[in-house]
């Protein structure tokens, strides 16, 4: 039952990505390419999503614990450190290059396109590589928004 609810959250998340247009990398690129034929969709996606989250977040945290876990596991760090800025900078460059971020790329795997597969494999490799060097330097991951 627990895993099923988590699975269904993933399904709903994918439907949200698809309906909002985030699974079409061309739309993302036309949002980021502000000198081209600009598509403002992404602003409304982020508004709709973060406002919904903001509205429900407080109610959920009034509970002493989540339904299926012993406690809430939320990011606790508050400091703005160089990795946060440098990592986000790299992420944005890759995002603007083809228009994929992690969620939509995973959802778009079902298209069977070679390019999506290449993207996801490279992304997975990048993450795996990071886990390797990160544990070597023992710079703890804050789970930061993650």
């Amino acid at each position: 039952m627990g895993l099923l609810m988590i699975f269904l959250s993933g399904v709903l998340f994918a439907l949200g990505l698809g309906i909002s247009g985030m699974t079409q990398p061309e739309k993302i690129v036309s949002f980021l390419n502000v000198v081209g034929e600009w598509d403002p969709s992404l602003i409304f996606v982020m508004l709709g999503a973060s406002m919904t989250y903001l509205t429900g977040y407080g109610f959920i945290l009034k509970r002493s614990k989540p339904i299926l876990a012993e406690s809430f596991s939320l990011p606790t760090r508050r400091d703005i450190d160089p990795p946060l800025v440098f990592g986000s900078l790299l992420f944005g460059l890759g995002w603007g290059l083809v228009g994929f971020c992690p969620g939509p790329a995973l959802v778009a795997l079902v298209t069977g396109y070679d390019s999506v597969l290449i993207f996801v494999l490279a992304m997975g490799f990048g993450m795996y590589f990071f886990e390797g060097i990160d544990s070597r330097f023992q710079r703890g991951v804050d789970g930061g928004a993650a």
Binding site: G87, S88, L89, G94, G103, F119, V120, V141
Partner: peptide, 22 residues
Amino acid sequence: VMLAGLLVGIGTRIGSGCTSGH
């Protein structure tokens, strides 16, 4: 595409989040 995937993979982990988490 490969470069973009690498940048997204490494960048989101160093920066601890992507469009969904942050």
